[in-house]
Amino acid sequence: MVKKKPKALVLLTAGTNCDLETEYALNLAGAQAEKVHINDFIAKKRKLKEYQILTIPGGFSFGDDIAAGKVLANKIKFKLEKQIESFVKDKKPVIGICNGFQVLVKLGFLPDIYKKLDQEVTLAINNTGKFEDMWIYLKANKRAKCIFTEGIDKVIYLPIAHGEGRFISKDQSIDNIIKKQNLIVFQYCSSSGNINFNSNPNGSENNIAGICNTGGTILGMMPHPERFITKHQHPRWTREDLPDEGDGLLIFKNTVNYVANGL
């Protein structure tokens, strides 16, 4: 019997621009992805509960004016709070990539240690002061209790493209809990997997590139897994022998499998 494909939402708003590749990645991973504008949910033309997976893709929502992700986070909080809260309560997976990560953090969904939906961490302007597009190595935290990293054992390689990605915790205790509860999902590292100063592209605390919530169903990450789905997206595919599948696809596959195996 053919299983029904999980329905994945690619949420659109003014300034979303990584929707095409996110849709493609989800479809390739076995989901049935659909791009829908946030206003259709606010106007109640559509409902979040139609979907099993929510992705907030990269881009410059509202131009990153004021601060990256801030205005969209408020829009979700003040216009869609109930819908999204029940989505999360049902343990349906949520992925925020780049701008989507910034939104989830500012919305208080990540890491949400104190379950109050207060902002506990932030993604500030890079310590380089620059927007930079480059490929970086990531180490997945094997102890992270999240649904996204199953089988990601080796160092993976993905691009970042952001100006505001410097991870900062509100205070030392949040920093401690993030580490202790294994909410860190990805850390910037060297090609051999060393997590050190030189492999940190933006000044993030603990080289943090991605975290999850305490329930392990919400993932936020600055690197773009949707930009490395097939080998031709790798910057060195013309010189290295690479598998056809890109490192980013596994994250989407894990998400789809989690849903397909019953929430």
């Binding site: 590749e21 620059k130 597009d133 949707e226 930009r227 910057p235 595919w237 013309t238």
Partner: peptide, 18 residues
């Protein structure tokens, strides 16, 4: 590097290679 040269995921020969 300050330009996003791979948004849309279609840049298969990038401006910087090697």
């Amino acid at each position: 590097r300050q330009y996003d040269h791979e948004v849309r995921g279609g840049t298969v020969l990038k401006p910087l290679v090697g």
